[in-house]
Design a protein around this nucleic acid. Structure first.
Length: 551
RNA sequence: GCCCCCAUAGCUCAGGGGAUAGAGCGCCGCUCUCCGGAGGCGGGUGCGCAGGUUCGAAUCCUGCUGGGGGCGCCA
């Protein structure tokens, strides 16, 4: 008996009551919530439907519960159903009915938890998109972890997901980057507004080593040459860091290509035709204020150059033309002011903001040292990069730490702390639980405990019931995680599974004691052990964190 | 001035209307001849303040206080 099965049964019972004229049909909530009560005395599962229906049906909640109880009590596997408090219905399920899940999970394997709720949806998820003027820093690393995990979760729900990285290789900042490289190559001081990190001189030297003749060029020609080589090297470096972090994008989209292909021009023309553009002060403006933005935006500056939003306009159009139902953008909090204009772009093309375009804002990551905040600046060159983080704590711990908090919260990273006290990271708690299930498997094999018997009724202790109910929540956790775009729910859930498993392990002897006979209970518990291992492995995979066999 | 996010245990954070608000870390104690002790068990009156909606609010709404970020013909 899983909560899904119970809520289906309740739903059926309610329709019968509607058909019998006992409850008006419009009083039935669209979702029947069946939850695990915090207090064991409140049953294995509980529902609040009676209280939800009561006000709409003008019937006291306990009366509605009275109508439902006989129907629920007659269900196979339900041992009793009780009214409690203001109108909760508490359900008690037989251990046999609850225990069959252990076997089902193991048989489903890596499929357990998956759903087809989002099948048919074609999503474009753009994240990181860090500028190629330096290595990916902590903020970008957070989006890499969260975005990739989100993509995996969407996929687990049946969606088709394209991971995309928008590479801003066009415009003034790239010019500053190029100038900084030239200055470094010539052993001159970093220009004002230039980039000063040590990676600048590394790249400059690397470019020179390959192309010594560049020093003989000058002016724009030289800057252009350094720009081209520098961006290329930065691009490769970023790609490699991401790959080492376990994140591979399906599409690396170059902003510059929108200009070279004429897409920007085309998109601007389109907006003109649609009547969303006007000229003023020698510039071409997008009348975004009439589409909900706080003010109008310049698209083509009075000097004839395109402004940044021109690329964004063309890029959005490109995504839609590539057939994506929904374009998701993950942006840092410092870009939240873009939502208005981006939604206006979406509307201008006749699409619906929030449906065809969805912008997720994540709060900043800040660096802390000994409890004191440290300001990071790419131009000043004191950034902590993705590579630094991975080197300090490893991919698993880094990804887990970045993905276990809501993106609505700012995150403090203390490298010193992470470096010397890696056990602080709950990832080990979860991974250890998984390794433990595997250790039990190895022991089972050497003891000759097979999986040829399974009697779910034997899984009757509290620890077993707790673990089973926790495991049964996995599909719902994934669905919610996808719906709210919140991968951290998976991490938090896994910590609970690990806790339940450890308690089960301590309270219930899985394998027989030395020289004792192998009984059905041992074999049955081995199924439950494996079910826990399956859920932990499936969950960790969605976070991009390894599930080790041994630690 | 306007916009976004945040405020929950000593610390880092979960909790998207339900019953007695949780986890990890840190601290103190306990852990049986037996599957890995990276585990388990026990030890706590913590939802910033004030209103409102509701049978019921940490959760939804309004105001306030405090903190972070943002408001370019930069990208």
């Amino acid at each position: 008996m899983t909560p899904e099965q119970l809520s289906l049964a309740i739903s059926k019972a309610l329709s019968e009551l509607v058909a019998a004229g006992r409850i008006p049909s419009d009083a039935i909530p669209k979702e029947i919530v069946v939850e695990r009560p915090k207090n064991r005395e409140h049953g294995d599962w509980a529902t609040n439907v009676a209280m939800q229906i009561a006000p709409k049906a003008s019937i006291p909640p306990r009366e509605i519960a009275e109508l439902l109880i006989p129907k629920l009590q007659s269900l196979d596997g339900v041992t009793s159903a009780e009214i409690a408090g203001p109108g909760f219905i508490n359900l008690f399920v037989s251990s046999a009915a609850a225990g069959v899940l252990a076997r089902q999970i193991v048989e489903s394997g890596s499929q357990y938890g998956k759903s087809s709720a989002m099948s048919g949806e074609k999503l474009n998820l753009e994240f990181v998109s860090a500028n190629p003027t330096g290595p990916v820093h902590l903020g970008g690393t957070r989006w890499a972890a969260v975005g990739d995990s989100l993509a995996r979760i969407f996929q687990s729900q049946g969606a088709t997901v394209t991971r995309e990285y928008y590479f801003n290789d066009h415009g003034a900042q790239i010019d500053r980057f190029a100038k900084s490289l030239v200055a470094s190559a010539k052993k001159e001081a970093t220009p004002e507004d230039g980039y000063a990190g040590s990676y600048i001189s590394e790249i400059a030297s690397a470019i020179l080593a390959k192309n010594p003749e560049l020093l003989r060029l000058d002016g724009e020609e030289q800057q252009e040459a350094f720009r081209k080589h520098g961006v290329e090297m930065m691009f490769e470096q970023i790609k490699e860091s991401l790959h080492n972090f376990g994140v591979d994008f399906d599409v690396y989209f170059h902003e510059n290509s929108l200009y070279e292909s004429g897409s920007v021009k085309k998109a601007v023309e389109r907006l003109k035709q649609l009547g969303h553009m006007f000229e003023q002060d020698g510039a071409l403006w997008f009348r975004s204020s009439s589409l909900g933005d706080e003010k109008d935006r310049v698209v083509i500056k009075s000097d004839g150059e395109a402004s940044y939003i021109a690329g964004d306009i063309a890029y959005y159009l490109d995504k839609r033309e590539r057939g994506f139902d929904r374009a998701l953008y993950m942006l840092g909090a410092d870009h939240h002011g873009y939502i208005g204009r981006m939604h206006a772009v979406c509307s201008a093309f006749g699409d619906t903001p929030g449906v065809n375009m969805e912008i997720l804002i994540g709060q900043m990551v800040s660096l802390v040292k000994g409890g004191q905040p440290v300001r990071m600046s790419k131009r000043a060159g004191n950034v902590v990069t993705m590579e630094d983080l991975v080197e300090t704590v490893g991919v698993d711990a880094a990804r887990y730490a970045l993905v276990r908090s809501s993106i609505n919260s700012t995150l403090d990273i203390d490298l010193e702390l992470l470096a010397k006290r890696t056990n602080d990271n709950p990832v080990f708690y979860v991974q250890y639980a998984h390794a433990r299930t595997k250790q039990v498997d190895r022991n089972a094999e050497s003891l000759g405990v097979a999986r040829d018997e399974f009697d779910p009724a034997l899984l009757e202790s509290e620890a077993e019931g707790e673990l089973l109910s926790k495991l049964s929540e996995f599909p719902r956790i994934l669905a919610q995680s996808a719906e709210f775009r919140e991968p951290h729910r998976v991490a938090r859930y896994l910590e609970e599974v690990a806790g339940s498993y450890h308690r089960f392990y301590d309270n219930c002897r899985i394998l027989p004691l030395p020289a004792k006979p192998i009984e059905t209970i041992h074999k049955t518990r081995l199924w439950l052990n494996d079910a826990a291992g399956t859920v932990l492995a499936n969950g960790l995979a969605l976070l991009g964190v390894s599930a080790p066999e041994r630690m």
